[in-house]
């Protein structure tokens, strides 16, 4: 009897050896990085100007706004929600920033503070209504999409607001690094987002809520505040994205960022985030953003006709997701 137990214990211990970290990372990101590498290879073959520092740095400095949105969207998707209002909230915070700076002469930090406050508040309202009252976030944030866009037009009187150099520095490359502060902070947001998701109680609860809200409740955890906080974070990320876009354009554009919510969702889904909740990675979403941007820049450099651009972009999005699904099944099998 005793020996049998020992034997069983031994077997169990051997079986618990975890997969090596690098193997895990390889499995998790391998497919996405392959898609990205493939795109870069194809564009490099088509245009000798593509694989140049100038082009790659241009790409880097164009993605902060979408990156911020994708970070927030990943969290929202993980808790099983969706946030369609991000484009409008981006435009709203950009508008507030622009009007306060250009028309009232506020310093950037104060104007940015107010913009973040408003964006965070709108996100909180999204969360409070959809989570607190159990209304699908799809419809709540769709409402916010319209409300925030309307508010943007009110704030700007439907005029684009030119701000100029006070805001430009944030979106323009620092001479020594050739990378913009916006890009660096966006990358920081990705790292922090991934850390929060995998290494904090908050992140763990988000995954749990998205997997099975009722099981979380029956585990004696109050899920509502966490889910609302996620929407608030998404709002704040819109504020950051608003700053990034405003600084890149030196202008607050009330018509800006229409439809960007779909690009953000696409980036997350390309990165393997489940629309059903419970599964996702901020880093993967960031790779999704890179794939979308590389595609856009590459196609523009080759000068592909507009219609073909859309066809190719759509196809690559679907194929990237398909490839990821296949990778998933394969790794489940082996």
């Amino acid at each position: 009897m005793e020996s049998r137990k020992d034997h069983a214990g031994f077997v169990l211990r051997v079986r618990f050896v975890k997969q090596s970290k690098w193997l895990q990372i390889g499995i998790q990101y391998g497919g996405l990085i392959a898609v990205l590498a493939l795109l870069i290879a194809v564009f490099s073959a088509c245009s000798k100007n593509f694989l140049q520092p100038a082009t790659l740095l241009t790409i880097a400095n164009q993605i902060p706004d979408l990156t911020f949105l994708a970070v927030g969207m990943t969290l929202v998707l993980i808790v099983g929600g969706i946030d369609l209002s991000v484009g409008s909230l981006l435009a709203l915070s950009s508008a507030i920033l622009g009007v306060l700076m250009a028309n009232y002469g506020w310093p950037i930090w104060a104007a940015f503070g107010i913009a973040m406050l408003v964006a965070g508040l709108c996100g909180t309202i999204n969360g409070a209504i959809s989570v607190g009252w159990g209304i699908p976030s799809f419809i709540v944030t769709l409402g916010m999409l319209e409300i925030a866009r309307g508010a943007t037009k009110v704030v700007t009187s439907s005029q684009s607001v030119y701000i100029g150099s006070q805001v430009e520095w944030f979106g323009q490359p620092i001479a020594s690094l050739r990378l913009s502060p916006a890009f660096l902070i966006a990358v920081l947001a990705v790292i922090v987002g991934q850390f929060v998701l995998t290494r904090t109680v908050f992140g763990r609860y988000c995954v749990a809520i998205g997997t099975n809200k009722e099981a979380v409740r029956m585990s004696g955890i109050r899920a509502t505040p966490y889910a609302i906080a996620v929407f608030a974070i998404s709002g704040l990320m819109c504020g950051m994205a608003g700053l990034a876009q405003t600084s890149r354009l030196s202008t607050a554009d009330p018509n800006g960022a229409v439809g960007i919510e779909l690009a953000a969702i696409a980036a997350c889904v390309i990165g393997g985030t489940s629309l059903m909740g419970g599964r996702g990675s901020v880093v993967s979403s960031f790779i999704g953003v890179l794939i979308i941007q590389v595609l856009q820049t590459g196609l523009a450099q080759i000068g592909v006709s507009d219609a073909n651009k859309q066809i190719i972009t759509g196809s690559v999005i679907v194929l990237a997701v398909l490839l990821d699904a296949l990778r998933n099944r394969l790794s489940h099998r082996s």
Binding site: V207, N212, E214, A215, M218
Partner: peptide
Amino acid sequence: QNGLLLSQSIITNTTLCSL
């Protein structure tokens, strides 16, 4: 239905209540 997070790991489920 309401006891486990089926798609999550053994670790996540074991520690969920006491994180």
